[in-house]
Design a protein around this nucleic acid. Structure first.
Length: 425
RNA sequence: GGAGAGGUGGCUGAGUGGUUGAAAGCGGCUCCCUGCUAAGGAGUUACAGGAGGCAACUCUUGUCGAGGGUUCGAAUCCCUCCCUCUCCGCCA
């Protein structure tokens, strides 16, 4: 959420920021509304102050022995009633106005940080670094072809059970998924992350707090009967872990790692990535999440990104780091690095992690602060996938594929998986 | 699903109409004392909005789960909703 005071005092700065994202917005009328609201608040509180004095006066006189029906007290009560009427009118006006303002600003995304590369779409994204050596020389199969041969993924049965865009894993496939989750959690917790297993069903306030609602309702599965939603990413419950809290300053940064299943409706992606593990309604993910103070959020972003990268390195999967340009940023982010893993089968880099600094955007929506001396400040929040499990499995299948149809398991994963390769069982 | 109890500051917990934004305890912070440690003493310790000094402050409004109502005045009375807990039933 954008800062009301900044909207009032420096709307052009925000207009410029939104414009960089490709949003042309004229904030003059919003600014006027905010000022009007401030005005109403002031008038109202002056009246209330007057009313409070009258209330005290009545109490004083009664304690001094005046009768409740004495002339003086009846006079004061009358006066109090008049004030009450005026206050009620102002309050009503105030409420409509502040509702209007809030509904507008909840729809505005975060503004990009100063150094964010400017551009309209992903063509303006910036290559930051590369790691490993992408295999390009041979004729590689795609991961779903490999998986089919090994009989570790069954899509048709998934349709029977649920519908399209679901996967059912068998044998070594199911085992590999489990191994990857444990492997990633172990690496991150060994670095000081606190492991969390959050609920998969989450409430509306949580989704508003992290920025998924009100704008992206159509992307999230809903249990309308209970007014709960299926979590689209652990980022949501992790943000709400500290919603409406003041975190002690000396416990920052708070670093969490959570495994969670993720559910997405994938509305509007019909026909894209229909095969395999790349785009499913349900997938597993290990998510990293930091609460930190504003001073340290830039360096924290480097660190959380490096922590996500360390998994790819440990699995010997070639990847590159891309900084998203202003037009490609997600709703809550002010700066994002995508980690893209190399998939030799499709001869392309594919997003496997997104690492974002949301600065105080989510913290303001969720009211998460820290106290430094007498000052209470919003914290900064950062998140990074570390990593998406299904896509990691796809990458392992494609990068580890052998000519005989077997798949080599990365060495670091062997203790978790228990075998050195995938082969027909 | 049936019956009951309750939601108060970082926490425990008092408070049923009038200087109660809220006792007390714990915790936190500051200072003092002590040769380290432990113990002790004094003080301090909610959040949000607004106005003014535009800095360390002062004034003001709101906030005791949320919303509405009664009243000159509500944490305290009434209504609605949400949530938590206990017992019984059912069930991993």
């Amino acid at each position: 959420m954008l800062d009301l005071r900044q909207l009032r005092e420096n709307p052009t700065l925000i207009e410029e920021g939104l414009l960089k994202r490709g949003l042309k917005v004229d904030l003059t009328s919003l600014k006027k509304d905010i000022e009007k609201l401030r005005n109403l608040e002031q008038q109202r509180s002056e009246l209330q102050s007057e009313g409070n004095l009258i209330g005290k006066e009545v109490g004083q006189q009664i304690r001094n022995g005046s009768k409740p029906n004495s002339k003086e007290i009846l006079f004061l009560r009358n006066k109090g009633n008049e004030i009450k009427k005026k206050v009620a009118l102002l309050e009503e006006e105030e409420k409509t106005l502040s509702k209007k303002i809030k509904s507008i600003i909840l729809h505005y995304p975060n503004i990009p940080y100063k150094g964010c590369p400017e551009g309209k779409d992903d063509s303006a994204n910036k290559l930051i670094r590369k790691w490993g050596h992408p295999k390009k020389d041979e004729n590689y199969k795609e991961h779903w072809q490999i998986a089919e041969k090994l009989k570790i993924i069954d899509t048709e049965r998934s349709v029977r059970i649920a519908k399209s865009r679901f996967a059912t894993l068998f044998n070594q496939g199911a085992r590999l998924e489990r191994a990857l989750i444990n492997f990633m959690l172990d690496i991150h917790t060994s670095k000081g992350y606190i492991e969390v297993l959050p609920p998969a069903l989450i409430n509306t306030a949580s989704l508003k707090g992290s920025g998924q609602l009100p704008k992206f309702e159509e992307e999230i599965f809903r249990c309308s009967e209970d007014n709960l939603w299926l979590t689209p990413t652990a980022e949501v419950p992790l943000t709400s872990l500290h919603r409406d809290e003041i975190i002690p300053f000396n416990s920052l940064p708070l670093k969490y790692v959570a495994y969670s299943p993720c559910f997405r409706r994938e509305a509007g992606s019909y026909g894209r990535d229909t095969k395999g593990l790349i785009r499913l309604h349900q997938f597993n993910k290990v998510e990293l999440y930091w609460f930190t103070n504003a001073d340290r959020s830039k360096e924290s972003h480097q660190q959380i990104t490096a922590d996500a990268e360390s998994i790819l390195q440990a699995l010997e999967l070639p990847y590159r780091v891309i900084e998203l340009c202003t037009g490609d940023l997600g709703f809550s982010a002010s700066c994002t690095y995508d980690l893209e893993v190399w998939l030799p089968g499709s001869n392309a880099f594919r997003e496997i992690s997104s690492s974002s600094n949301c600065d105080d955007f989510q913290a303001r929506r969720s009211s998460i602060r820290t106290k430094q001396g007498k000052q209470t400040n919003l914290v900064h929040t950062l998140n990074a996938s570390g990593l998406a499990i299904g896509r990691t499995m796809a990458a392992i299948l494609e990068n580890g594929q052998q000519k005989n149809g077997h798949v080599k398991i990365p060495e670091a994963l062997v203790p978790y998986f228990g075998e050195k390769e995938l082969k027909p069982q």
